[in-house]
Design a protein around this nucleic acid. Structure first.
Lengths: 238, 238
DNA sequence: GGGTAATTCAAACGTTCGTTTCAATCTTAT
DNA sequence: ATAAGATTGAAACGAACGTTTGAATTACCC
């Protein structure tokens, strides 16, 4: 009747529906009709408000990554201010980088576990425009954290640090996105299916020690590889 | 004179093209016309030889996973025979599981790095039939290795081992599949782009120490979590 | 060499995709 | 109240999708 104020922000309804569906079915596996159907809006609304399906995906991420990027930089700034020019502890850097991520999983207004899973899953999407988008969004933050890790681990060759950063991102992404995928493979249900604060807390308690253990693992034998890649700097014993 | 080769390798040409294209563009992002075009065969050939696109994907994996599964079981059998009933070293178990995988990357006749990347990427595909297929293909091998890890690490709670198995799979998959995806994000090129033996060897030297370090990392604080998990009731949420 | 099955081929099938159109409706400021 | 602009609605667009058809061609066995 008169209270049917049918304007609960069409844009937000579309973004919420798209976030959930992209997470569940992937970008190519989600159609515009699925999105507008779940959002309860007209099919043409997506193209009217966002321009295209690609632009919609970008906006889905932008409204979350703005906060994530800013918060990650803020956390690193705080650490560096506290250290007063000294090197940071690797565990503190990981806590700032991944802890900030997991904080999103606990806060429904920041997207919660839904966005975390979408993020982890989308990093492996093969579409070119998606990869290009992420490269641009992440560049500054990754650069800052990479340099912090270089300073925190001066005895580890930078290339090795980059590799392990790589591997930590992969482990974390799978732990988040592979909630049902990999746990089907491992044949055992780990109780991170439920959304909300518990899932993110469990995740943090389980994953952070693993990441730190991997980061601080003994270095591989470099003699052979160093020759192959013709890097002049020798390995410092560790 | 080919007595058993009744086909002019049309089947193999399709499988090779599909393997490469699925790796590059994903399942949904690869069309039948792309596959038959690259294979140089007629569009109808896929449905004639395999029945459907889904069945083609399954066959692409089956011709590789048959070897991988058998070899992984054989490697574990050899370890257990050598141990004569004793527990295995965790590093040996990882070497058997992931070393076998990386052996495929070095052998072009087993699919090489192309198949490895396809495998890592497909594990995150959201399509239901893909997940169901992998669950069936992997079940036996995962079960065997899980039990071996339980015996090798009796002081670690089984659920924690499963989690870390999870995380190791994720790190390895990203290291393989994320060749260009994540290295764009990290903004630094790691030279695993080239196929062939070198890439797999580099991968092994870099990744295995990381995985072992994560697996043997100190356990998290369990007091709080243990209460939640010691209760046998599952508390499943929708 | 003829008969039979296997395979290839061009063409079309029906469906779904993202996108566009344009009239109808709602919002807002004058 | 009314004009102007913003938003929504129903319908259709052309293209691309996976799949099917039926005739033409090839390979194989007796």
């Amino acid at each position: 009747m008169s209270e049917t104020r049918t304007q609960p922000d069409t844009r937000e309804r579309i973004l919420d529906a798209a976030e959930r569906l992209f997470m569940e079915s992937g970008y190519e596996g989600t159609s515009m009709r699925m999105i507008t159907g779940e959002a309860g809006v007209n099919l043409a609304a997506v193209n009217y408000h966002f321009g295209s399906k690609e632009a919609l995906l970008r906006e889905v991420f932008r409204r979350r990554l703005n906060w994530l990027n800013a918060e990650r930089l803020r956390a690193l700034d705080a650490l560096e201010a506290e250290a007063q020019g000294g090197a940071l502890k690797p565990s503190a850097i990981l806590e700032a980088f991944f802890g900030t991520l997991l904080k999103m999983g606990r806060d429904q207004s920041l997207g919660g576990m839904t966005f975390l899973r979408l993020l982890g899953r989308t990093l492996t999407e093969p579409a070119d425009f998606i990869r290009a988008f992420f490269a641009g969004e992440y560049a500054e933050v990754i650069e800052r954290y990479k340099k912090a890790l270089f300073r925190a681990l001066p005895e580890v060759p930078p290339e090795e640090i980059i590799w392990r950063f790589h591997l930590m991102l992969g482990a974390m992404s799978y732990a988040i996105a592979g909630t049902d995928a990999l746990q089907v493979i491992t044949g055992c249900e780990v109780d991170m299916n439920n959304d909300g604060p518990d899932a993110a807390q469990l995740l943090e308690a389980r994953v952070m020690p693993f990441l730190l253990g991997g980061l601080r693992a003994p270095l591989p034998q470099f003699q052979l590889l160093q020759v192959q890649q013709s890097k002049p700097e020798p390995t410092k014993a560790a």
